[in-house]
């Protein structure tokens, strides 16, 4: 079964996607109040993510939720670099050094996130 990661696009993120082939992948949610790109996740990749980040879970919609913010930021950067949703996720999961950095940052996320 395939799952998805929903990558939320704020104005800054949208800027770098506009004009690229990824633009047609942008989904309008909730009457256009939120924009998102959905990255497909295989069963195997979902398992890896759950092993890497114990809080990760699949919600009722089939979305992989509660990935660390550091992971989602890295996924977005990878998406911009690779211009392909499939390649973006694969590249992160292959890069042990990057994964270690994400895990390190994720452990700090559990301590403090600055309030708005």
């Amino acid at each position: 079964m395939a799952y998805k990661i929903g990558l939320v696009l704020d104005e800054e993120r949208l800027k770098l996607i506009k004009g690229t082939e990824l633009e047609k992948e942008i989904k309008d949610l909730f009457g256009g109040t939120l924009k998102m790109i959905e990255v497909e996740v295989t069963e195997e990749q979902a398992k890896i993510l759950m092993q890497l980040f114990p809080r990760v879970r699949i919600d009722a919609r089939g979305f992989v939720e509660e990935t660390p913010v550091a992971f989602r930021k890295a996924l977005y950067r990878s998406l911009i670099n690779h211009r392909s949703k499939k390649d973006a996720l694969e590249a992160i999961l292959k890069d042990d050094k990057l994964l270690n950095e994400i895990k390190e940052m994720a452990s700090k996320e559990d301590e403090y996130i600055p309030p708005p």
């Binding site: 929903g6 939320v8 704020d10 919600d59 009722a60 919609r61 939720e65 509660e66 989602r72 996130i113």
Partner: peptide, 14 residues
């Protein structure tokens, strides 16, 4: 939308 979806947005500062 689920509770975990909303938690994800909040954690990301959205």
């Amino acid at each position: 939308f689920s509770g975990s979806f909303v938690r994800g947005l909040i954690a990301e500062g959205v």
